[in-house]
């Protein structure tokens, strides 16, 4: 894939670099994976709309040269639903963090999945609210230390992939910023898949989550991703129970239910036929 080494730069707004993310933050890696996925699908920039929410990963639109809509905290999927429902021919990619996409925006997440609207949500999960100082989120593991759970998180975390799968998404996958070639493929396949696609990207926040939970600097946190991620197709995965702290990566669920726009078009055809009859 020699062409890919430069083709993806077309989607990157290099004039905005260096970006605002901390040293060792995985957001830049996830952004690279997204641009390579867009390049591999050869999507023209003007046919792509990237919708972002608020948070560290929500700033990603500043570094992209596609169309972009940067909205409010938790609402990115709702903004994106408007874009996609109005213009089904556009490729709409939604970038949210775990706080944005799964905590304040949890309701929109399950409804976007239920509606099975043809959006691709790329949720970077760093287990806490990075931008506001490392507070607890809906994906912070039980017991973990954050700036608002000083004695440990008393609440359980969401398994986002299981949540979204249960809500009806057509494509559900998890990757990490350590396993980049795989992450490129997961995002690419998610975009190519009709219906709601959800890719959780496990990523280090060395500044807050890593520091408070003594997980070491970025390099150590990347090593942890390597150790704890279990490929769904692997022999280890088939062995049964996951060890504490481990998680599956890869394509976790796929189905071919009709997407929102396809179902909607059927209803609209009926309505248009009625409109013609009565005139």
């Amino acid at each position: 894939m020699p062409g890919l080494k430069t083709a993806w730069k077309e989607y990157l707004e290099e004039s905005m670099l260096p970006h605002m993310w901390c040293p060792g933050c995985g957001n830049g890696i996830a952004l690279g994976a997204l641009t390579r996925a867009l390049a591999e699908l050869k999507l023209p920039r003007h046919k792509v709309v990237v919708v972002t929410g608020i948070g560290c990963w929500g700033k990603a639109d500043d570094y992209l040269s596609t169309n972009a809509l940067h909205g409010t905290h938790g609402r990115a999927l709702a903004f994106a639903t408007g874009v996609k429902a109005a213009r089904p021919e556009l490729t709409v990619v939604v970038l949210m963090g775990d706080g944005d996409g799964a905590t304040i925006g949890g309701n929109h997440l399950i409804h976007a999945a239920r509606r099975n609207i043809d959006l691709t949500a790329v949720v970077v999960n760093n287990y806490n609210y990075g931008m506001t100082g490392g507070q607890v989120s809906a994906t912070t593991p039980a017991g973990a230390i954050t700036s608002t759970t000083r004695y440990g998180n008393p609440e359980r975390d969401f398994d986002l992939c299981r949540l979204v799968e249960a809500a009806g998404a057509n494509y559900v996958a998890r990757g990490t910023v350590y396993h980049v070639p795989q992450l490129d493929r997961l995002i690419r396949d998610g975009i190519a898949k009709k219906g709601f696609s959800f890719i959780e990207v496990v990523s280090p926040c060395p500044t807050h989550f890593g520091r408070r939970n003594r997980l070491g600097p970025a390099v150590q946190m990347m090593k942890l991703l390597k150790e704890r991620a279990v490929h769904v197709g692997s022999a280890a995965a088939k062995g049964g129970e996951l060890p504490e702290g481990s998680f599956f990566i890869g394509k976790l669920a796929e189905r071919d239910d009709p997407d929102f726009n396809t179902s909607y078009e059927k209803m609209r055809k009926k309505a248009l036929a009625k409109g013609t009859e009565s005139s």
């Binding site: 408007g82 109005a86 309701n107």
Partner: peptide, 27 residues
């Protein structure tokens, strides 16, 4: 709106409703 070839969508709440309106308007 359907009879006119348009789109009607009932969102999950009002925050999402106005957000979808903004997204649609930009198209």
């Amino acid at each position: 709106l359907l009879e006119a070839g348009g789109v009607y969508i009932q969102m999950e709440d009002e925050l999402g409703s106005i957000a979808a309106v903004i997204g649609a308007s930009l198209t």
